[in-house]
């Protein structure tokens, strides 16, 4: 029993010692005086500005990607055929121009579905421009057929000529060329956004490297003393990396918070132009925005580690 009591007392004494050591330990030690040497104003401000730009570039990347997908989708669903004087006899004389064209479209392999618009649907389309008069027009309207392309197919160059032979004056509105151009534009915008991201990251690394060198210059004597007392390169570099990582993290958090309402507003404006999946793209934007502060911390930490270790290599 006395042994057990002694052990218990020893454990309590150890626990008290540990608690006392924890209580006595300064919350944040600053052996090298980096809190003063590495200001908590300029660098976080610069990182906040760069994070804001990075957030806009990310949003641009995401939006151009969504729009490219939307336009590519339009290319497969948006081919429209107009047949003037649809009720008149076709060139063959056996049927109406409308039926002749529909029969021909049904036989074409590149068409997976052809949907003629009813008069009511056509009137609905015209209502925004003509109002209630759209349903009672005296002028004859062409018949309109919306085509869906077969998967992997494109419209042949002679398709319009083939339909024109059956029903002269029939036109095919093919958005393919525009879709190709717009897709190319979207791809260029994506590349541009990526380039902006890359430039922002390079500027961030440069700014942090300059700040690190300024800190090293300001604390040259302290570093030399700590080095002579036996501090390893890792000990010194970790102090710089911790401080610079923290400054970058706080700056990036501010930049991300400022960018958040801007991204939400831009997302709301872009919603009508995006496909149905646009909401998930907005979520991806928010996730990317949330990842910017930890990324900034990592860039700050790693840049400081490399810059300080290279500088220390000159010491004996």
């Amino acid at each position: 029993m006395p042994d057990r009591a002694d052990q218990h007392a020893a454990r309590r004494a150890d626990a008290a010692d540990r608690a006392r050591a924890r209580a006595l330990r300064p919350a944040r030690r600053d052996d090298l005086g980096l809190r003063r040497a590495l200001s908590d104003r300029l660098l976080p401000f610069l990182v906040a500005a760069m994070t804001f730009l990075a957030a806009l570039a990310l949003a641009g990347f995401s939006a151009s990607s969504d729009m490219a997908a939307s336009w590519r989708g339009a290319a497969t669903t948006g081919v429209v055929v107009q047949i003037p004087n649809a009720g008149a006899p076709a060139a063959s004389g056996h049927t109406t121009r409308r039926d002749a064209v529909l029969n021909a479209l049904g036989a074409m392999r590149w068409v997976s579905a052809e949907t003629p618009l009813s008069d009511a649907a056509l009137a609905d389309l015209l209502r925004p421009w003509l109002g209630a008069a759209a349903a009672n027009l005296v002028v004859p309207l062409p018949a309109v057929v919306v085509l869906r392309l077969a998967p992997g197919s494109s419209m042949p160059a002679d398709a319009e000529a083939a339909l024109d032979r059956l029903a002269p004056g029939t036109m095919i509105e093919n958005p393919g060329i525009w879709v190709t151009r717009l897709t190319r534009l979207a791809t260029s915008l994506q590349a541009l956004s990526f380039l902006v991201l890359l430039i922002v990251a390079l500027i961030a690394v440069s700014v942090i490297a300059v700040a690190t060198r300024a800190g090293l210059a300001a604390r040259r004597q302290s570093i030399a003393i700590v080095h002579l007392l036996g501090a390893t390169d890792g000990f010194i570099a970790s102090r710089f990396a911790r401080r610079l990582g923290l400054l970058c993290l706080s700056g990036a958090a501010i930049g991300a918070l400022v960018a958040l309402p801007v991204l939400l507003a831009l997302g709301r404006l872009a919603t009508p132009f995006l496909p149905a999946g646009g909401t998930s793209a907005a979520t991806a934007n928010l996730v990317a925005l949330a990842l910017l502060p930890p990324l900034a911390w990592l860039i700050g930490w790693a840049t400081a580690q490399i810059a300080v270790r290279r500088w220390l290599a000159r010491l004996t």
């Binding site: 080095h227 036996g230 501090a231 390893t232 390169d233 290599a313 004996t316």
Partner: peptide, 8 residues
């Protein structure tokens, strides 16, 4: 360098 630091 680490060996020299330990020595110091």
């Amino acid at each position: 360098r680490a060996r020299l630091a330990r020595l110091r």
